[in-house]
Amino acid sequence: MKARNIGSNSKMTEIVARKRKMGDRKEKTAPKWPSIKPKNNLHVTPLRDFDLFTVQNFFSSAESKAFIETAEGIGFAHQGSLGPAKGEAYRDNDRISVNDAVLADSIWDSGLNKLFSDIRIRGKAAVGLNPNIRLYRYKVGQRFGRHIDESNDLGDGKRTRYTLLVYLSGGPGELKSKAKNDSNKPTDSSFDRLVGGETVFYGSRNSIVAEVAPIEGMALLHIHGDKCLLHEARNVTKGVKYVFRSDVVFA
């Protein structure tokens, strides 16, 4: 009778079991973001020349709601800070961060590229959006204290120069429903009209330069880096505030 190689058989069994386990894993599917349609005749409202301006109806109501639905499906993570005592702005909101160059390009090409066609910073032109896409959720009592947005070097001569915020809720067309029996979805306050959550910009001597109330689909753009105005996201007192965030890249 031949001796059995128990060690070899055990190793083979372990390899087969590992392969079966790997085969059982489900591949994570990429988020299904809404298809962004081209926007013609976008209207710009300057709040401080082209350093700070808004764009009405940058996202349609359907696009805004679809972003919220997809984001809630992904799931938000809470984001806080050490606070002013530790040199950080007070921050209390929920956040998602994904890298998606295709989504960034589709939003840029939907009309934002035309708005920036004549803007130059230190001889550089706007070339697109930062593929690092962030979505924020502010429930009742949440806010983001006074802070400035930094300019980030993306390499290859590319640098972020403007903050892009698009309000996904607020005003006449905001979210009115939520999925049932899902603890990760917004609370019942999502049935309420959004109150609060204004983005406020400050100038010298604490003077208010602009106070922007969230309106569904409206974009807010402001220069950041060394020319960034001190600003804050005020406390939400009713409803839920959702925001899409990226940056305009120059090169």
Rank of each mutant, 00 (worst) to 15 (best):
M1L: 13
R4M: 10
N5R: 08
N5G: 06
N9C: 09
M12T: 10
R20A: 12
K21N: 13
M22P: 00
R25F: 12
K26D: 09
K26S: 13
K28A: 15
K32C: 12
P34D: 10
S35P: 00
H43D: 02
V44F: 06
P46S: 13
P46N: 14
D49N: 13
D49T: 12
T54E: 15
T54Q: 14
V55N: 01
Q56I: 06
S61I: 11
A66M: 08
F67N: 03
G75Q: 09
H78T: 12
H78F: 13
K86R: 14
E88A: 12
A89C: 11
D92G: 07
N93W: 02
D94H: 14
D94K: 07
I96G: 02
I96V: 09
S97N: 08
N99F: 11
S106D: 10
I107L: 05
W108G: 00
S110Y: 03
S110F: 02
G111W: 06
N113G: 15
K114V: 13
S117G: 05
I121W: 13
V127C: 15
L129N: 01
R134V: 04
R137L: 05
Q142R: 03
R143D: 06
E150S: 13
S151E: 15
N152F: 06
G157D: 07
K158Y: 10
R161H: 08
Y162C: 03
L164P: 00
L165S: 04
L168H: 03
S169H: 07
S169K: 02
G170M: 04
G171A: 11
P172L: 10
P172W: 11
G173K: 14
L175Q: 11
K176N: 07
A179W: 09
N184L: 10
L194E: 04
L194Y: 05
G197P: 08
G197L: 07
G197Y: 05
F201G: 01
S207G: 08
E211V: 03
P214C: 11
I215W: 00
E216W: 00
E216M: 09
G217H: 04
H222D: 06
I223P: 00
D226V: 06
L230G: 01
E232C: 12
E232S: 12
E232N: 12
A233D: 02
K238V: 00
K238E: 15
R245S: 12
R245I: 06
S246P: 06
D247M: 02
